[in-house]
Amino acid sequence: MTLYLPIVILLVLALVFAASMATVVSDGVGPRRWNRAKLDAYECGIEPTPLPAGRAGRFPVKFYLTAMLFIVFDVEIIFLYPWAQSAVQLGVFGLIEIGLFVLTVGAVYVYVWRRGGLDWN
């Protein structure tokens, strides 16, 4: 536990700093000059779109797809790390197992690739 204590100390430091910067300093130190245009969404001076994407509108689907892919591969990494750490102890058995695992994920990867899941345009 003691090994985590320093991180907590640093966390507190950073948090106090960042939070004060984001609230006290940002809103307290600077001037406040109200201006309706200033509070509008910034869209290069044109009238802002009535429904900004994301609140009631939609995200491009592509980002969801990327998120899903990331999850798949992050999971792969979750399993690769323990194996990598103990690969020598696990020996050939572990190697074969992880190979099968990687191949399985690889099949998904190939599928996504071939179906255009990795193409952006």
């Binding site: 191949l103 399985t104 099949a107 998904v108 190939v110 599928y111 690739w113 071939r114 179906r115």
Partner: peptide, 10 residues
């Protein structure tokens, strides 16, 4: 099933 996924791909 995995082969099936590959079939989809190829």
């Amino acid at each position: 099933a995995v082969v099936g996924v590959l079939v989809e791909a190829f």
